[in-house]
């Protein structure tokens, strides 16, 4: 229905689902090819299976290469198995995305829109991808080409989109995963234009009880 909305939701779902399996900013240097990819994949799947919910603050920085400026924002998100998500920006503007089973809500200070996820192919894909993230099967996805790296404190996954729609936005996604708890510390989205967006997850709370109204739709 609205292709751009779906694309945004697709990315947000990807972010949330991947954070299930890493708390500190990581240097992107000093990574070397991962020695035991299979062991890493097993630990991702195991961590995902044990993660019923997650709540985390986030700080986002968008680099505008053309304007040579950075735009910073922050907020909080909640995720609950199987497929409930609240992605809420609070500063410098209010913006909210809620996934609740087959329904998606997008809200800003002036507008609220609710979409039926089941009504569109893209929404079905989003749901499938989210579930695959939760159960760790994203690593089997045909939508990305994966490269695996590590250093003593963390793993780095580089995902190159194969899906044509995603390629219009993204050239690559980098995920920085904390080796201690196998959760995402940082996400880096690189665009063809030279822009990039870095999202840093802080103050993560795993398996904390999240009030159900967090995912309520109007």
């Amino acid at each position: 229905m609205k292709k751009i909305r779906y694309s945004i939701l697709f990315i947000s779902t990807l972010i949330v689902a991947l954070i299930i399996p890493s708390g500190m900013a990581l240097s992107q240097n000093d990574y070397r090819p991962m020695e035991d990819v299979e062991a890493f994949r097993s630990s991702m799947i195991s961590a995902s299976e044990n993660s019923l919910s997650i709540a985390s603050d986030f700080e986002q920085m968008k680099h505008l290469s053309f304007l040579e400026e950075d735009v910073k924002s922050r907020g909080i998100f909640y995720f609950q198995k199987e497929n409930k998500l609240r992605w809420e920006y609070s500063d410098p503007f209010y913006y909210l995305i809620i996934f609740n089973n087959d329904t998606v809500l997008i809200q800003d200070e002036n507008n609220t829109n609710v979409y039926d996820a089941a009504s569109g192919k893209m929404f079905r894909q989003i749901n499938e991808i989210m579930l695959s993230m939760v159960n760790g099967s994203i690593l089997e996805s045909d939508d990305f080409e994966f490269e695996y790296f590590e250093k003593p404190s963390s793993y780095k996954l580089e995902l190159r989109p194969l899906d044509e729609n995603m390629k219009e936005f993204l050239s690559k996604i980098h995920l920085f995963i904390n080796k201690k708890d196998i959760t995402v510390d940082e996400l880096l989205m690189l665009e063809k234009s030279g822009d990039y967006t870095r999202i840093h997850f802080i103050n993560k709370r795993l398996n904390e009880e999240i009030p159900q109204h967090t995912f309520d739709l109007p």
Binding site: I8, K62, L67, D195, Y196, T197
Partner: peptide
């Protein structure tokens, strides 16, 4: 002037 328009999640619409 330079103008950039991008989504809340950071993905670029135009420069």
């Amino acid at each position: 002037y330079k103008v950039s328009f991008f989504s809340e999640l950071g993905l670029n619409f135009f420069d």
